[in-house]
Write a protein that binds this DNA or RNA. Structure first.
Lengths: 342, 342
DNA sequence: CGTCTATCGGTAACCGGTGTCAGCAATTGC
DNA sequence: GCAATTGCTGACACCGGTTACCGATAGACG
């Protein structure tokens, strides 16, 4: 408010120094919370900063410090809900810092994938990048990050990297929850709709199914499995194959919610009522799950928590050891599963 | 490959200048495609750049140019699919530029909303921000951007600002499409589920309904309207009220897909079959629409195209005049609507 | 009273680019 | 033939911070 040297341009560190009667060096010390600073000086400078509304120029800071405060988020849009949940978790972690989140969708199947990511890292020079599945499963990208000297954390459904560069969900355990849930209701013939080959999450979920069925002494043979690729249509097609078996399964576990919705459509087309004649369980707890009819029982993994942990590993590497790397999932029971018909 | 002064650090403009025997200013001219440059010099420098793998430091550039190449995306997560579609459109527009997209979710109802946005703009100093509905409807945010000297474009469902700062969808026209679609099938008693008060999109969609019903000479009175707030549950509750009317409507238009899904659930609970006894039309064409049963007829608005146009208005203001500000929507007919029962 | 420590300032260089302006050669005009 | 213009290039300061180094001051302490 005190009209003093009121240029229209944003105030710089020099203005603060001049008005508070100290050197810019001291102002810099205030900004960076240097410990050896007289309390009165600090308060005086802070008062001027507040009065001027001074905010340090991030570009100048980044240049001098030889590092910036950008976090990159590399993803292949596996699912909008998941990407946004992840963004939310990261933003929560960096809320009170000067970090910002830069999003960078890529095409996993593009031949230029590595070039695209290289260009992104070289041009923007983020302090670190977070990589979402399924692109995170590509080891070449991690190698690239190391080559470029860029910090990174991968998100995965299996042990992809060391703990400092990974947040991991235990999909085997999670599928086990779903199968136990169905078995506890009395189901013995449980079908499985797999995800696409080449996805770590898909193979982990299938392994979880195999392990659970073996543990429960149930038949998990090939006749009860059908391939999908995480799309609605593939879930529909897979369900058609499973339901044509005789006797058909009394329950179907689909490796994600979209395929589970496809299974539901297939059942409805055949006049099979859900859950009375067929139970369905999905995976991911996307927004579809609660909005289809009947509401879908599914597995929810703590994406936002994982994102928060991943971001903290980058932002505050010192505290990285305190950040968990392995996260467990929960079963969300809804109305799409019930005991099998007598 | 030519091992020359091979420090581990990234090459700078000085390295390029030294190795190509020109001044750094000339290298700068090459980078910025200055027209008055000898072709041979240009090629010589470009060869060195390619050999060294030199990429200009964005922070240094930003500092010298007194502007950076960050675009901020401010949103309140109205819907994950929509936000991601918007991101996709923006990214497409800035694909071959040095711009990057920084996401910044905010809480529309927080008392600190303006402070949060102010802090974001002051700390990150983005070149411009894109504001998604419903936060975009807050005029104070636009004022704030002007005060801070930050470029901005708002996305809205009505005329919120001048064309240079707005991409607009015509929700009235869009709702008209949906009502025409139902009326053409023979529906006369058409119910309407409104969005929450205070949302411009909600009032525009309601106005579209009123205009269409009046134009068609149908009864659009209050008894056929029910309030919702864009959530699944509110759509369910609104449908319950509408379906308790006698005679009940033969079709219901819901102001978004989530509420339409709620309407569908309500109908199913009451044993009303869709679309035989009740037609339902939604709005937005989110992923829910295609994945529920029956697949939902809905209105799709071109989010990605709008995003692309919005981004171009910021990135290339010179070409802004060529960028459309008003976008029209399409009706996506699916299986949730059919002629009314005889 | 001398020394030590804490706290600050001054000066300078630097981070890696860009703007300004002057200089030089080659070309053009008359 | 000489001045004026054009095309191309480099020297230098500068953007807004940071660090390094040294020096100055003041109060505390022995």
């Amino acid at each position: 408010m005190a009209g003093k040297a009121k240029r229209d341009a944003k105030p710089t560190i020099n203005d603060v120094a001049r008005l508070s009667g100290v050197s810019k060096k001291t102002v810099s010390r205030v900004i960076n919370r240097s410990p050896l600073l007289n309390q009165m000086t600090r308060e005086k400078v802070e008062a001027v900063i507040a009065d001027l509304g001074y905010v340090p120029n991030p570009q100048a800071r980044a240049l001098a410090l030889r590092r910036n405060f950008l976090l990159g988020l590399i993803h292949d849009n596996p699912n909008a809900q998941m990407v946004l949940n992840f963004q939310e978790g990261v933003l929560d972690a960096i809320k009170d810092t000067e970090f910002a989140l830069v999003v960078r969708p890529v095409d996993r199947k593009s031949p230029r994938l590595l070039d695209d990511i290289r260009a992104f890292i070289e041009v923007q020079r983020p302090y670190g990048v977070l990589i979402l599945p399924p692109v995170s499963e590509n080891d070449a990208i991690a190698d690239l990050c190391r080559e470029l000297g860029c910090n990174y954390v991968r998100m995965g459904s299996a042990r992809l990297d060391d703990a400092a560069h990974l947040v991991e969900s235990n999909d085997r355990q999670a599928v086990g929850l779903a199968i136990d849930y169905l078995a506890d209701m009395g189901h013995r013939r449980i079908g499985f709709v797999a995800g696409p080959a080449g996805f770590r999450s898909a193979s982990e979920r299938e392994a979880g199914f195999d392990e659970a069925m073996a543990r429960l002494g149930l038949d998990g043979s090939a006749g009860l499995k059908s391939a999908g690729n995480y799309t609605f249509e593939s879930g529909h097609a897979a369900a058609v194959r499973l339901l044509d078996n005789s006797p058909r399964p009394t329950a179907i576990f689909a490796s994600n919610d979209e395929m589970a919705a496809g299974v539901l459509h297939a059942a409805r087309e055949r006049g099979i009522t859900v859950p009375d004649e067929l139970s369905i369980v999905g995976f991911d707890d996307t927004s579809i799950a609660a909005h289809i009819w009947p509401p879908l029982s599914t597995v929810r993994w703590p994406i936002a928590s994982m994102a928060r942990s991943a971001a903290l590993k980058l932002v505050d590497p010192a505290a990285a050891d305190d950040q968990p790397s392995l996260f467990l999932s929960d079963l969300i029971p809804r109305a799409s599963a019930a005991p099998p018909p007598a």
